[in-house]
Design a protein around this nucleic acid. Structure first.
Length: 473
RNA sequence: GGCGUGAUGGUCGAGCGGCUAAGGCAACGGUUUGCAAAACCGGUUCUGGUGGGUUCAACUCCCACUCACGCCUCCA
């Protein structure tokens, strides 16, 4: 049984898909006006964990992630750069997909762009107008009227009578009947430059919330299983999506809403406006790998705040390195079927616990603890003389875990272990060679002197069963 | 002001109304090593923000307080 904490109702609920064995999932994607930061990627990694967990449990997932490629910011920044909107957003779409690959995020089935779905959105506005849920204001914009929607406020309890009205609201309020009404269609004005589409209500562009309602309907149907996003999307974005979709479609929009907590830095939300963010590229430029970053960002339960500390990436590196040396060891176990049955039993037990942990609202801590306990067993089996056949089973179990985790990298670790270290300078190799000879001759004074020389040159030497190994200090 | 989330050992981070409070990283001890490093093994560090309450029994439920963070129309 898989269960999730459903924001709708704020309860832990068993997951029952509409169609057995299949799950339709809509995940709010990026606004492509800049590089996404790792707080954004935390959400996408959570969604990746979600889809991989469903798949691990044999459920076929259809995931849709939208790309918001027209809004205030994309228009503002493309105009400031003097570049056509499409060209401008193309750059950040490409960067986004590149970053997803770095983090081993499994691709969604559909990545619809807002600008490619204007007809679908206009169609939905038409329906809302016809049913009386929307109205046109003096400036030509179309708004959704909250008052017409009895169910408004399913995700968050808000008391609109008793709100502290901020400046942002006041500046936007002029054309609306009610403060909470939101734009379905924004009438063109000169700030939009050449960005505009024709509509029955005059030239303009779609409101932000509308794209998700229109595109989810197109790719997932009127009612679908799961909708996710960051907690900051609960209001107004998701609340407005529900209002639009349920009003237009006349039926329930989404069965399970899952929201991911924020990534914080020094206890504060990471955000573009506060300027306290790291992009993925900032971290990879410092030498951290996608796997290490993935390990760190996935390590905290999605409904808890994750305080990002760059130093913690070192923890990730240490932990992953231990796995990699173990994989290499498993790969060189001599032939034989010793302890094969034990290996199979340990693998099967670990697999079941791992699956159960994930099924419990994506309890990654439980799943990881299982992997680590399994590793302890694996080491025990190796110490007891497990043969090659057993090693193959154990290694396969790590590959199986990695269908969800995607940071263990069993096979690339094995390849790396086999490949010669090519980037070591010749003179360092020569010193290491001389040291090996000195050691062979039991001239330890000379060997230590050579090691000091190697260290002075910025390299460390370790003696492994397979011979000396060099690494940068 | 309204709504919501959280506070666990050096650090990150779980479960659970009652076995010795997972697991990672770090530290420490041991095995191994010519010495190291790496690897493996091991116990250890806290009595669970504060104060009450319920209960035979609470870290786990309830109340209050303190602190922190988030949302209240840009925001993953």
């Amino acid at each position: 049984m898989i269960r999730f904490f459903n924001t709708l109702g704020r309860r832990m609920t068993e997951f029952t898909p509409i169609r057995e064995g299949y799950a339709g999932m809509y995940t709010c994607g990026p606004t492509v006006y800049n590089y996404a930061h790792i707080g954004n990627f935390r959400a996408y990694l959570f969604e990746d964990l979600l889809r991989r967990t469903l798949e691990y449990h044999g459920i076929k997932v259809t995931q849709v992630m939208n790309l918001t490629d027209v809004d205030d910011k994309t228009i503002r920044d493309s105009r400031a750069a003097g570049i056509p909107l499409q060209t401008f957003t193309r750059k950040y779409k490409d960067a986004f997909f590149e970053d997803l690959r770095t983090l081993r995020v499994e691709p969604a089935e559909h990545y619809p762009e807002a600008t490619s779905h204007i007809p679908e959105m206009l169609n939905m506005i038409r329906q809302l107008m016809d049913k009386g849920y929307a109205y046109q204001s003096d400036d030509g914009s179309i708004y959704f009227s909250i008052e017409k929607c009895r169910n408004y406020g399913q995700l968050v309890k808000l008391d609109f009578e008793n709100q502290r009205i901020g400046d942002r609201v006041r500046s936007d309020e002029y054309a609306k009947d009610s403060v909470a009404d939101f734009a379905l269609w924004k009438a063109w004005d000169e700030n939009d430059g050449d960005v505009k589409w024709d509509s029955p209500w005059g030239p303009g562009r779609p409101g932000w919330h509308l794209e998700c309602s229109a595109m989810s309907r197109k790719y997932l149907g009127l009612t679908f299983d799961i909708h996710t996003g960051g907690v900051d999307n609960m209001f107004p974005h998701h609340e407005d999506e529900i209002a639009q979709s349920e009003s237009a479609n006349g039926c329930k929009f989404v069965n399970y809403w899952l929201h991911c907590e924020h990534l914080t830095i020094k206890g504060q939300k990471m955000s573009k406006s506060l300027g306290n963010f790291y992009t993925l590229r900032d971290l990879t430029a410092k030498g951290w790998s996608g796997a290490e970053i993935r390990y760190l960002l996935l390590g905290t339960h999605y409904r808890s705040k994750l305080n990002f500390d760059p130093d913690a990436l070192g923890t990730a590196r240490s932990a992953l390195k231990k796995f990699h040396t173990l994989f290499a060891r498993l790969n060189t176990v001599p032939a034989g079927d010793a302890l094969l049955a034990e290996a199979k039993a340990a693998s099967e037990a670990a697999r079941a616990k791992f699956a159960d942990g994930l099924a419990d609202d994506l309890n990654i801590a439980e799943a990881l603890a299982t992997v680590h306990k399994f590793t302890k067993e694996v080491n025990g089996l190796l110490a007891k003389g497990a043969g090659h056949d057993a090693a193959v089973v154990l290694l396969d179990q790590y590959r199986d875990f990695d269908r969800v985790l995607a940071f263990l990298d069993v096979d690339s670790a094995l390849e790396a272990a086999d490949a010669p270290k090519q980037d070591v300078p010749a003179e360092i190799l020569e010193l290491a060679q001389k040291r090996a000879e000195a050691k062979k001759a039991k001239d330890f004074a000379a060997a230590d002197a050579l090691r000091a020389q190697i260290n002075a040159a910025g390299w460390a030497v370790k003696d492994t069963p397979a011979g000396p190994e060099l690494s940068k200090l």
